[in-house]
């Protein structure tokens, strides 16, 4: 490939990366009430990592984020399926969710929801899948 000057891209990436990731985490948590959720959050996060990949090369990125994305897929699936199984233990049909409201300091009245756990699984799987795909294709060059 052509040798390009990436300085601008790299500098901007450093700044925006955290913004994007923060935003994606926000999207993930707000999903139950506002647009967002596991899918979008996961995709946004992987978008951020893709940006990182574009700005730097694969070696650097794997040095920064030494994650095995295939394991992430497995972990995510376990998370989701595990949440469903939890309902079974409680004697309810598979994937029945429960929620409650608690008052937390600073945040005030907050809802705690098992669906978040399920969505966490989705979040992890989406990141894992996207990154596995991109990384393997990238590495094969």
């Amino acid at each position: 490939m052509m040798k390009t000057n990436d300085i601008i891209l790299q500098t901007v990436t450093k700044v925006t990366l955290f913004v994007i990731i923060l935003f994606s985490i926000y999207l993930f948590f707000t999903g139950h009430y506002h647009p967002g959720g596991g899918f979008i959050g996961g995709l946004m996060s992987s978008g951020a990592i893709v940006l990182l990949l574009l700005a730097y090369d694969i070696k650097t990125v794997t040095a920064i984020l030494p994650v095995d994305y295939k394991k992430m897929i497995g972990a995510g699936l376990l998370f989701s399926a595990g949440t469903g199984t939890g309902a079974l233990i409680a004697g309810k049909p598979f994937l029945t969710h429960a929620y409650t409201y608690v008052s937390l300091p600073l945040l005030g009245k907050t809802s705690l929801h098992t669906a978040v756990l399920f969505d966490t699984g989705v979040f992890l799987v989406v990141i894992g899948v996207t990154m596995t795909i991109i990384q393997t294709i990238g590495e094969s060059e």
Binding site: H32, G36, H113
Partner: peptide, 14 residues
């Protein structure tokens, strides 16, 4: 029933 407000997301996860 699901304690959420974003219907699309609630349908998906719940």
């Amino acid at each position: 029933k699901a304690g959420g407000e974003n219907m699309v997301n609630v349908i998906l996860v719940d």
